[in-house]
């Protein structure tokens, strides 16, 4: 790891001030991605701004048909929250599938979605539930948030403070894991929400994306067979040693079908 200067701001405002004026500064959430990449000397920020002690960033609030998860809420807290399990069981289940027990104790929702890792799980829920990303500057709709591989709509220095998930009628997440990294080769989040059906896919493309054809088919009939015939195009999907684009495209359909089945249970 290269040397850097460590900061521990007491508030989001202080944190914003620290990263705002320094393009080579990095925000530290749980560090489960950033610390790794720094250790491997693949990232070398001059300054690391640790959000870990900012109290206002952690916590879960369930009220008025939404579940609001503070940016520094650990995956384990979401997975284990009785309130989340009751309101959006699929969200708790998804959080419980991220990484492993130890990683879930440190990793945070804010860190995960700000990173927009193409294989991360949370983006599927954010997009699949049509969540709102709340930052220190504004609110961003999920549909406008993930803009590319490791790219989001966040401005330099902008800090996610919470993610607000509307409670759906029913939802489920199905993940086909990369056997080595345990990230998603393909993960599909299916939700029937107040604003219609949403199907979001992670792992398959450069960033999480929705599948309108599946949403339409499920809108007509919410049943596994509705998506069984819908294929996504392989052209724009990721291809690597573990899964070709064609295989990923196929898995999107299989996982979508299984997610619908699970949501109906």
């Amino acid at each position: 790891m290269h040397a850097f200067k460590y900061h521990r701001p007491g508030s989001v405002k202080d944190a914003a001030a620290l990263v705002g004026k320094n393009a080579d500064a990095k925000l530290l959430g749980g560090g489960q991605t950033l610390v790794q990449t720094m250790k491997l000397r693949l990232a070398s920020p001059t300054d690391v701004v640790d959000l870990g002690t900012i109290k206002e960033l952690a916590g879960i609030k369930v009220a008025g048909g939404t579940v609001e998860v503070g940016a520094m809420t650990r995956h384990a807290a979401v997975a284990g929250s009785a309130e989340v399990k009751k309101a959006i069981p699929a969200l708790a289940a998804l959080a419980g599938m991220i990484g492993d027990r130890q990683v879930r104790e440190m990793g945070t929702i804010g860190g995960s979605i700000a990173n927009s890792d193409p294989a991360a799980d949370y983006p599927a829920a954010v997009l699949g539930l049509g969540a709102t990303i709340i930052t220190d500057k504004r609110k961003i709709e999920a549909d406008k948030f993930f803009t590319g591989m490791f790219e989001t709509a966040l401005q330099p220095g902008e800090i996610i403070t919470a993610v607000s998930f509307p409670v759906p009628k029913r939802a489920a997440y199905m993940k086909f894991k990369n056997p080595a990294s345990r990230f998603a080769i393909v993960g599909v989040f299916v939700a029937e929400t107040g604003n219609g059906i949403r199907v979001a896919v992670t792992g398959a493309g450069p960033n999480a994306f929705r599948v309108p054809e599946m949403e339409k088919a499920l809108g007509a009939k919410f049943a596994p067979e509705s998506v069984a015939k819908v294929k996504v195009k392989a052209d724009d999907l990721n291809s690597d040693l573990h899964a070709s684009a064609e295989y990923r495209a196929h898995l999107v359909t299989v996982m979508a079908k299984r997610a619908v089945e699970a949501a109906m249970k």
Partner: peptide, 23 residues
């Protein structure tokens, strides 16, 4: 079922160089 050491045939780079890729 899971383990495979893979070198890129053109560049000779080890593609499966961590537990994230070598299972």
């Amino acid at each position: 079922l899971t383990e495979n050491c893979h070198y890129d045939p053109d560049t000779g780079q080890l593609v499966t160089g961590s537990f994230s890729d070598y299972c």
